[in-house]
């Protein structure tokens, strides 16, 4: 694509009110630029004077760094990520979690809030197989073992609701700039939604099905411009055809967190 074409596209987008610099799609091995003025960032590499792409994705330059934002691929854990996982297996010293990645994660006993005496308490009283957890990546070692901690104010166990899996590369789009997209879906559908960085999305509320459709719509059209408006229109259309319910849960997501935190305390008290 020549520079002129790119400009034309940006102009026409500006006319529609959508401006995005993430336009050009590059393929592995494609020459990005032939200069020493730029540095190869994520998913790029330098050979001689030239910078090449390593992945299929969208080309982005920020300052002097060129990078490729992938449009597909698996989740690669990073320390500090909040992720959603399913308890797969219980071992002597913790829980094995499926986190929608090439590797399974582990919650050690030191990773939960309460002290556990394994002689008195069975581990499946805390988390049983099949439970959904929302935790933080504590460690990601070079040998690819992932440790999750639940000792985080946001961490919790989900006792109900539903989970959909989307591609992890679409998560930033689902959240939007400073949470614009996800809060729009939350407000419109009055659902509680938690998004894990690993592409697992938890939802609970009356209009779950519409919220799921909206999430899947974002996944499918993540790389297009003007998506927020289209999702907004979609939500209005879908919700408009439904009779308005009298009571709508107005409590905020934080309040729900507190509620589920007290659930965990209940488990502790029961022992």
């Amino acid at each position: 694509m020549t520079e002129k074409n790119t400009n034309d596209i940006q102009k026409s987008d500006a006319a529609n009110g959508n401006v995005s610099d993430e336009k050009k799609i590059v393929v592995p091995g494609e020459l990005l630029m032939e200069t020493m003025d730029y540095l190869p960032g994520k998913n790029c590499f330098r050979e001689g004077n030239a910078i090449y792409a390593k992945k299929l994705g969208l080309l982005r330059t920020s300052g002097r760094v060129v990078e490729v934002v992938p449009v597909s691929g698996v989740y690669n854990p990073e320390v500090g990520d909040m992720i959603i996982g399913v308890v797969d297996e219980i071992q002597n010293a913790g829980w094995v979690i499926d986190i929608n990645a090439p590797y399974t994660a582990f919650i050690p006993l030191s990773g939960v809030r309460e002290f556990i005496d394994t002689n008195k308490t069975s581990l499946n009283q805390i988390y049983a197989a099949g439970d959904l957890i929302y935790g933080k990546v504590m460690m990601f070692s070079p040998s690819k073992s992932v440790h999750i901690t639940m000792q985080d104010p946001k961490a919790k166990k989900f006792t109900d609701g539903r989970v959909v899996r989307i591609n992890t590369t679409k998560v930033p789009r689902l959240i939007g700039r400073s949470g614009s997209m996800i809060s729009m879906i939350k407000d419109a559908t009055k659902c509680f939604i938690s998004v894990g960085q690993n592409g697992m999305v938890w939802l609970k509320g009356e209009n779950e099905d519409i919220a799921i459709k909206a999430v899947q719509m974002v996944e499918e059209y993540a790389h297009t411009t003007g998506l927020t408006d289209r999702v907004d229109a979609f939500l209005k259309k879908e919700l408009g055809s439904r009779p308005a319910k009298k009571e709508s849960p107005k409590e905020s997501f934080e309040e729900y967190s507190k509620e589920s935190a007290s659930n965990e305390e209940y488990v502790e008290a029961k022992e």
Binding site: V27, P28, N43, Y52, K54, K55, S72, G73, V74
Partner: peptide, 11 residues
């Protein structure tokens, strides 16, 4: 392979 988002130096 490229479609699956796997890092490749070339097609």
């Amino acid at each position: 392979l490229a479609d699956a988002g796997i890092q490749m130096s070339d097609l």
